[in-house]
Simulated assay, not measured.
Amino acid sequence: MSSANSSVKPTGQPCTILVVDDDEAMRKLLVDTLQEKGCQVIESENGTEALNVLKSVVPNVIVTDLKMPGGGFPYLRLLQEVAPRCPIVVMTAYGDSQSKAKALECGVHGYFEKPLRIFDLKAWICQMCLVHPCGNLPFS
């Protein structure tokens, strides 16, 4: 295995996903949905907490809100620096084409506007877990 893939988990292990959102109801919905699909989920309620989590855990995918305490575009840049090989998806209720372009410039791989369709987000996560192999996710 090359050093570029050293953080990738072997096939058969669940995808580890960091879910970051200050909206407790949204965070719980995402955590419950992903856990039901066999994912290992770590949750954080703000950007600062998420960056602290990344000091000890490298998830396979990061799903994060944009506008929250400790969030914003500087936060996205820090996520990219701390976990450069980890795909990042942004969820936001304040989406527009300018915000999307700026988020993509910060290194995010996916961008979803709230209210989001859970099915679409699950499909995106499944694709990222296939690109960054970490197990078989029974998404349907």
Results as ranks from 00 to 15, higher is better:
54 L>T: 00
51 L>I: 02
103 A>F: 03
128 M>P: 08
70 G>D: 05
119 F>K: 14
77 R>D: 09
113 E>G: 10
68 M>H: 03
130 L>S: 13
3 S>C: 11
38 G>S: 09
79 L>H: 11
24 E>R: 00
135 G>W: 03
50 A>P: 03
132 H>E: 13
108 V>Y: 11
85 R>L: 14
52 N>V: 06
113 E>R: 04
114 K>M: 09
63 V>K: 00
61 V>P: 08
117 R>G: 13
48 T>E: 12
109 H>P: 02
17 I>K: 02
73 F>V: 10
63 V>H: 04
119 F>Q: 15
40 Q>E: 14
92 T>K: 01
60 N>P: 01
9 K>F: 09
114 K>A: 01
108 V>N: 03
97 S>T: 10
28 K>N: 14
35 Q>W: 12
22 D>H: 09
123 A>T: 13
26 M>A: 13
57 V>M: 03
88 I>C: 01
47 G>E: 02
65 D>G: 07
85 R>S: 15
66 L>W: 03
95 G>P: 03
11 T>R: 13
69 P>V: 10
9 K>E: 13
37 K>C: 13
93 A>G: 13
108 V>H: 11
106 C>I: 11
87 P>M: 02
25 A>L: 15
110 G>L: 06
11 T>F: 15
52 N>F: 09
39 C>S: 14
96 D>S: 10
124 W>V: 02
41 V>D: 05
66 L>N: 04
112 F>D: 00
129 C>W: 08
25 A>H: 12
74 P>N: 07
133 P>H: 06
50 A>V: 00
140 S>R: 05
34 L>A: 03
64 T>S: 05
14 P>I: 05
18 L>D: 04
119 F>W: 06
118 I>P: 05
86 C>Y: 00
109 H>L: 15
25 A>Y: 10
55 K>F: 05
95 G>I: 01
127 Q>T: 02
12 G>W: 11
58 V>M: 11
120 D>S: 11
55 K>D: 11
6 S>D: 12
5 N>E: 11
94 Y>N: 09
86 C>A: 02
37 K>I: 10
63 V>R: 00
93 A>Q: 08
46 N>F: 00
66 L>M: 07
32 D>T: 15
3 S>L: 14
64 T>R: 01
133 P>K: 05
73 F>A: 08
107 G>M: 12
56 S>L: 07
65 D>N: 05
108 V>M: 04
45 E>T: 13
13 Q>N: 11
120 D>Q: 13
54 L>E: 00
136 N>V: 14
102 K>D: 14
19 V>W: 06
138 P>M: 15
84 P>G: 04
31 V>D: 03
27 R>H: 12
8 V>E: 09
137 L>A: 13
102 K>F: 13
23 D>E: 11
73 F>C: 04
32 D>Y: 10
90 V>M: 00
32 D>M: 05
58 V>S: 07
83 A>T: 07
87 P>N: 01
83 A>V: 01
32 D>K: 07
58 V>C: 10
15 C>F: 09
116 L>D: 08
43 E>P: 06
126 C>G: 12
138 P>Y: 15
